[in-house]
């Protein structure tokens, strides 16, 4: 057993620090792990949930940057809509959101205060709405007074048309280079009388038929109005849709293609126009595509973020 320093030399009580060591000030670092949850409305959730029947769903693939001075941290949201950061120094950050093919409106805070009060990390929710910039809806008006079996005094289009263009990229969208477009037409030559309009005739996606006559400019993936510009003076409406349900641009486009192809089967290959505007025609086709793909002309938010509403028209 050690009996102390018995028999040994006692260490010197004096200690001289080496002169070449720097002075070290020990300061507790203020930092925390951080998660930002990016979410948008989810349509189709059971009613009775919060927000008047809308639920919220995480949005994947959003690049979330937080910036303080010259320091920026960037992370991309995962399948749950969460962007995760570790060891973020305390401070006040500016949040910016980006996602290719979308324009994002941050409906929540754009400033983020980070402090070290939580050892397990902090979670911040951001509620957004997104506009898909690589799908574009075109609407030529119907002049109802002259639509059936007639034309107006100038010989211009009384029927109108609704169709949907899909672009590969935002650059293509800005230069109006769609890769696909879809609209619903009566098969070329199928309408033989005004009465057919109401009883219904054979319909065709894009008015294209592989074995019969097609409209000029039609193909399986191009509506006859494929090349018509958004600056065409007769258009009553042209817009990029807002989205819900947290999907990627590729997923929205894929749904559009799939539903455009399956529409004929769903409506028994019928084109029709009822007096109340119902039936299976270009307008109801576009509205159908939009609802199926969670695309909306309007996505609104009410006071206190309650009362979200959507509309295809």
């Amino acid at each position: 057993m050690d009996g102390g320093n018995a028999g040994g030399a006692r260490p010197s009580a004096r200690y001289d620090a080496p002169q070449d060591l720097p002075q070290v000030d020990v300061v507790a670092r203020c930092e925390t792990d951080l998660t930002i949850l990016v979410e948008e409305p989810e349509v189709g959730a059971p009613r009775g949930n919060r927000n008047q029947g809308f639920d919220w769903i995480g949005v994947k693939g959003v690049e979330v940057s937080i910036r303080q001075g010259s320091t920026t941290f960037t992370a991309t949201t995962d399948a749950q809509g969460k962007a995760r950061y570790s060891a973020v120094p305390c401070g006040l950050y500016v949040v910016t959101l980006r996602q290719a093919e979308f324009r994002i409106e941050n409906k929540g805070d754009t400033n983020l205060k980070v402090n070290g009060s939580s050892k397990s990390g902090r979670e911040k929710e951001l509620r957004i709405r997104r506009q898909l910039r690589t799908v574009e809806m075109f609407r030529l008006p119907t002049q109802y007074m002259v639509a059936v079996g007639a034309k107006d005094a100038t010989g211009d289009d009384p029927y109108g048309h609704h169709w949907t263009k899909i672009y590969a990229s935002e650059a293509d969208a800005s230069r109006e280079r769609p890769m696909e477009s879809y609209g619903w037409w009566p098969a070329a030559g199928a309408l033989t009388s005004d009465w057919d309009t109401f009883t219904g005739v054979r319909g065709a996606l894009n008015g294209y038929s592989p074995s019969g006559p097609s409209y000029a400019g039609a193909s399986p993936t191009t509506d006859p109005y494929h090349t018509k510009s958004r600056t065409y003076a007769s258009l009553e409406d042209v817009f990029f849709p807002w989205v819900t349900n947290g999907k990627t641009a590729a997923e929205y486009k894929s749904i559009l293609r799939t539903k455009a192809q399956s529409f004929a089967r769903d409506v028994s290959n019928t084109w029709s126009w009822r007096t109340d505007g119902g039936g299976w025609h270009c307008k109801t086709f576009q509205a159908y595509l939009m609802r199926e793909a969670f695309l909306w002309k309007h996505v609104g938010v009410g006071i206190g973020q309650f009362g979200w509403s959507t509309s295809t028209s």
Partner: peptide
């Protein structure tokens, strides 16, 4: 621009 659902466009 042409329009119509007939075989001959307007």
């Amino acid at each position: 621009h042409w329009w119509g659902y007939q075989l001959v466009p307007n």
